[in-house]
Amino acid sequence: MNMAQELVAGATTAPPVDPGRRGSGRRRRTRLLLRSPLPLTAAIVLVAIMLVSLIAPAFIADAAQRQDLTQRLSPPFQLSDGFAFVLGGDTLGRPMLLQLVVATKTSLLIAALSVGLSALVGSAIGLISGYTGGWVDALIMRLSDIIHTLPSLLLALVILYVLSPSITNLIVVLALTRLPIYMRVARAQALEIRERVFVEASKALGSRPWRIMLRDIRPMVAPTVLTVAMLEVANVILQAAGLSFLGVGLQRPDVDLGIMVASGREYLSEAWFVTFFPGLLVVVIALAANILSNWLRAVDDPGQSALFVSRKSLRDEEVSR
């Protein structure tokens, strides 16, 4: 009995694509990525930014915080003050370049943690909601409606007002405001999958609901949730920066890209670069993430995006049909 159960479970944990093709799908993606210049550039830029911002702060954290008032708002693109000041000095004479690296690390960490948290919690709730159905489902969906009714920034503003702003609260609030997306996606999938025959089979073999959810349905929901999470990274980076910009997100002495943009606001006419560079970095990161996730979707569904389909390949496809 136990073995039969394992057999059924083993056969059914397979994602929509069978396990044999899964590896080749990844290889196919890598091959495709190497051939498409725009997503490849985006990937390289993103990986480079991640590596630098994860490794470098260990060496430059002190130098980044050191204030040198003679360098206050010193203009960028001059190497006379050393490479650290190549992007100028900020409002307190700290080297912009090093500050940017440290701030990027914080922004990326916040985004990664809150996307991970909301994807995990949201899809779990959605899965339970979709599989269980009934009043649990109705209640959970109404809750998601409520979060969805309120503009995310407003909700975050109010919650961070009640709880004091801190990096943990910021991550939790960002995760909370993005929950409904994952809840809906996971719920819709679970609703569909629970009607499939293999779930019936698992049930007939005596699997308890939590086992069906965890072993049978979860593996099939995971890829979709992952795609959504990829898409969300850029959104969350923008939102976190916005909250910090408004002064309710991260607080000094911690620094992220939103705080850096805000700090240059008062000096816009004298020192444009204090505001300009951190924002530009946000654009670069978000754009690269957006291009990558767009491309990932296009690989699975070529009709989707204009950027990664050439007319020629489309013609070839039509001819071969």
């Binding site: 850029a234 923008l238 920066a241 916005g242 910009f245 408004l246 939103g258 943009v261 240059g264 606001r265 816009l268 505001t275 300009f276 951190p278 924002g279 530009l280 946000v282 654009v283 978000a286 754009l287 993430a289 957006n290």
Partner: peptide
């Protein structure tokens, strides 16, 4: 969709 609105406003 990748430009932070507050930064766009300031620029």
């Amino acid at each position: 969709a990748s430009i932070p609105d507050f930064w766009f406003a300031l620029v």
